[in-house]
Amino acid sequence: MPSACGSGPLSDAATIDTAAVAAPAARASLRKRDQRALTAYGLVAPAFTLMLLMLLGPLASVIALSFTDYQLGAPAFSWIGLANYQDMFADRVFWISLRNTLTYVVIVVPGAVTLGLAIALLIESGASLRGLYRTIYFLPVMATLIAMAVVWEFMLHPQFGLVNGLLRGAGLPAFSWLQDRSTALYALCAIGIWQAVGFNMVLFLAGLVSIPKQLYEAAEIDGAASAWARFRLVTWPMLAPVTTFVIVISGIRSFQVFDTVHILTKGGPSKSSEVLIHTMYTEGFEFFRSGYGAALTVVFLVFVLLLTLIKARLADRGVQTA
């Protein structure tokens, strides 16, 4: 933009045209520039300090901690290099919990995203009771997951649980969902999807509202007669940024799964529902191996960072196509 060059620091000097006054003018402008830079740093400082204290500081200390044998409450600790990581990679439980976490993510993310989108589309296309449906689906997000987990525990109870009651009523075999090695993780996945759908739905609803109605009219005029054709032509591409965001957010939240695991299964039976954060909690706060817990956290952070990087890349591409 041509107007931008007129407001730069150079323009102060450029307005003086005689050579005689050029030198002092340049010095003056230099002083002025320093002053401006100082003001800028001053303005950035509070935000930067907060970021350092709240985000970067803890992150750095967790990474540092993972190279020590610090135990919670211990008066001293020593530097042990990569020993924590070596322990971790040799530990069967770590690999089980990593595999379980990835399984959880791979099931919950597609489930919660497609269901969220489907419900948002249904609510958006419905004529009445939109507010009611929105509230109902959003309830799990607002409710305390710990309380809800207790409710789920009752629902999934092998003897008098609602789920098994329904299954028996339909003449199907019942399961002891949370006590069975083959079903515990999947039962947790179902709860995870149930909990995330409402949040995703709200994001998709916001995205749907922002699509200009005229695009649908243009699509109709252009011959997109079926709802599927209009979805493919308008809705899906226009929602792309929201979808990317929802996938990444659901991914990060699924990686963080902890409360349901802790309340319902404690990672059992026999580690079949052990997940990364739960392992970290057990190591760090039950066995007080803070250094080892920190190493687990670093692994967790690497995955979250990967997801974030993928999102940033997709968002960049999104900007170019918009």
């Binding site: 009219e217 243009a218 005029i221 011959g223 997109a224």
Partner: peptide
């Protein structure tokens, strides 16, 4: 509308 075989140019152009 899609079966009426009319074309329309919108005020906002409504390009995808």
């Amino acid at each position: 509308p899609s079966a009426r075989n009319l074309a329309m140019v919108f005020q906002s152009y409504a390009l995808y």
